[in-house]
Amino acid sequence: MTTVAITPMNEQQHTGQTPKTLGLNLVWDKAEKAKVKSVLAKYPKGRERSATIPLLKLAQDKCGGWLPVDAMQLVADTVNEPYIRVYEVATFYTMFNLKPVGKFHVQVCTNCACLIRGSDGVTKAVKDIAGVDSSGATSKDGTFTFTEVECLGACVAAPMMQIGTHYFTHLTEEKTKDILNHLKEGGDPLKYADTPNAASDPLHNGDYEEHV
């Protein structure tokens, strides 16, 4: 008979303890208010709850990349729903972080395509530079949070990782190290990020044929 370790509970799920809160009285600032208004305007009156996900995203950005309970409550009040309904949504989607993340949230794809193309090296590089050993951990200095994620839809440029809103593709262990060091020193992510991908983007620079 095989024995398998106890299935670890999702780290993001709060079990029993009181979930993290900022203990602040959060309110939308002026710019955010305008955004909230435009998001709410997309849905018919009485269906404000449809705006839950975009508003949670907005709240997450507001709070430095994660969602304290206060932020979820702010969203709930905004869409006029009971708190629990927003907690349910926020805990369901892995894109919402329920505990603080570092300055750079490094999400490394370890799904099939990336795995085959060498995501192990990428993972190793991130772990080394950040000095962490498991998914969900944040480096001591608070610079990097490393998370293993499922397919981010950029398989064609595997292996890849996402940092903030940027995609970094065609990675190797070395390249990953360079990127992280560059970011750590305050470099512009665009030096490496979001590079056009010829193979998947025939219209971009026309050299599709060559690549095949």
Binding site: N10, Q12, Q13, P82, Y83, I84, R85, Y87, E88, T91, F92
Partner: peptide, 8 residues
């Protein structure tokens, strides 16, 4: 509305 299902 205080009871719900969180997580997935």
């Amino acid at each position: 509305e205080e009871f719900g299902a969180t997580g997935r």
